[in-house]
């Protein structure tokens, strides 16, 4: 295996708040290969967004403690100066946010916002930046780009705003694109268009993508590898096929079980995961999923509540669970039996 383009090692992000220390990310490691897409799945508050804001260095420095290592193409981002990070942001690594209306400035035209990034990193003139903005809008499929370039975000539709956002992120041909739930706020047709657009652009430019979502359907569509996060930790990792077809962790089973399927009988009820996401202020001891897990008795004793299960990986595949491999296979077979796919 070649050296990964992005490598995150034992990342810990802790925020000090008035109520105490919030362990938003607690020992997370993953790699992103060049030109590949890593999907990060998890509930709200599982630490997915924090992880990615930390990669870009957009956390609040005063209240945040960060440990671990983030290597982008060999460069240690956590050790980089603010100036070095400014040079990388928008240039080598870029980000697309969830709510395009809130994330685009209401005070500047689309063209200006796209061109601004380009000018900052290439030193282009205003005229060149505008031409580049029109080119990017064409690329992301905005009709009449030479006219729409002077529009403000509020004059765009939701889907067009997200396209503009993608154009803005890709204007300097970044090698790493972080997409934080870019399709969550869009309706399904537009969502599919945006996913296709991202896939096309990735093929064209060879960008590595980290795709954050809570939607496994989206993961199935776009990801090469999948990382499942729970309570600030990785609970399962593997290729898309491995994680979606043969999930090893009870939490991933729960995620799959709570998703409707188009195949098979329609009267199979959805089974939501009981309980609610853990507080990161006082996370559960041992396995963070154990209070909501239905398999703690099968593990036996109080191991789930006391010992943190390690994430043991073989060839990038593994899950952090105390169940034995045989047990997992057996329980998943039971689970899958109730589900057609």
């Amino acid at each position: 295996m070649s050296t990964p383009f992005l490598s995150v090692r034992d990342l810990r992000v802790h925020f000090s708040t008035e109520d105490g220390m919030v362990k938003a990310v607690d020992g997370l490691s993953f790699d992103v290969e060049k030109g590949k897409t890593l999907g990060i799945v998890g509930e709200s508050g599982s630490g997915k967004s924090v992880t990615n804001l930390t990669i870009l260095g957009l956390h609040h420095p005063d209240h945040t403690e960060i440990e671990g290592e983030i290597l982008l193409d060999g460069q240690d981002l956590l050790a980089a100066s603010e100036r070095e990070l400014e040079r990388l942001r928008g240039n080598k690594m870029a980000m697309i946010f969830q709510d395009a209306l809130a994330s685009l400035s209401p005070y500047h035209t689309i063209g200006k916002q796209i061109g601004e990034t380009y000018r900052k990193h290439t030193g282009a003139s205003k005229r060149e930046a505008r031409a580049r903005a029109v080119e990017m809008l064409t690329k992301v499929g905005i009709p009449q780009p030479d006219l729409r370039v002077d529009d403000y975000p509020h004059q765009f539709s939701g889907g067009m705003r997200q396209r503009a956002m993608i154009a803005m992120a890709l204007v300097c041909d970044p090698e790493l694109l972080i997409a934080d739930e870019p399709t969550t706020a869009l309706d399904v047709t537009v969502q599919a268009q945006i996913m296709d657009l991202l896939k096309d652009l990735q093929q064209e430019t060879g960008t590595s993508i980290i795709f954050i979502t809570h939607d496994l359907g989206v993961i199935a569509d776009i990801a090469d590898d999948v990382l499942v996060m729970y309570g600030g930790r990785c609970v399962e990792r593997g290729t898309k096929k491995e994680v979606l077809r043969k999930p090893q962790h009870p939490y991933t089973w729960g995620l799959l079980g709570s998703m409707p399927s188009l195949e098979g009988p329609v009267d199979v009820p959805l089974s939501p995961i009981p309980g609610s996401p853990p507080s990161l202020l006082n996370p559960p001891t041992g396995c963070r999923f154990h209070p909501r897990c239905t398999f703690t008795e099968q593990v036996g004793g109080k191991r789930c509540a006391t010992d943190q299960p390690p994430l043991e990986l073989t060839a990038g595949r593994g899950a952090a669970c105390h169940l034995t491999t045989e047990q997992r296979a057996e329980f998943f077979a039971d689970f899958a039996g109730t589900r057609p796919n």
């Binding site: 870009l56 957009l58 603010e82 400014e86 040079r87 990388l88 942001r89 928008g90 240039n91 870029a94 980000m95 946010f97 709510d99 809130a102 994330s103 685009l104 400035s105 209401p106 601004e116 990034t117 900052k120 990193h121 803005m168």
Partner: peptide, 15 residues
């Protein structure tokens, strides 16, 4: 604290 301010930072613009 607005999202668009965070986006501006994510574009690499100076503080």
């Amino acid at each position: 604290n607005e999202d668009y301010v965070r986006t501006a930072r994510a574009k690499g613009l100076s503080r």
